[in-house]
């Protein structure tokens, strides 16, 4: 029971931070990361929220390092 509660709490905290981060990311962060994201329509920003919330540690790390899109 305790382990299950701990897992769910950790999951909840991860998701809550992710949602807050995602709101900032789609509003400002995405265009810092990728020039093509400047002036994205609202629908695109909304579509990006789940992905930003799921991958927030990676995206936050990229934002802190000021990196652009990966070289392809």
């Amino acid at each position: 029971m305790r382990a299950a509660e701990a897992i769910l709490t950790a999951f909840g905290i991860y998701g809550a931070i992710g949602l807050i981060f995602a709101a900032f990311f789609v509003a400002w962060g995405a265009s810092r990361l990728d020039e093509a994201a400047h002036g994205m329509p609202l629908q695109v920003r909304l579509i990006l929220i789940p992905g930003a919330a799921a991958l927030w540690p990676y995206l936050a790390w990229r934002q802190i390092r000021g990196e652009g899109p990966p070289v392809q």
């Binding site: 990728d34 994201a37 799921a54 990676y58 990966p70």
Partner: peptide
């Protein structure tokens, strides 16, 4: 499945890079 659906937009392909 959620992670894959949430990152299926072109934006993620460009910004995660093809490898990741």
């Amino acid at each position: 499945l959620f992670v894959m659906a949430a990152t299926s937009h072109d934006f993620w392909n460009s910004n995660l890079g093809p490898g990741l």
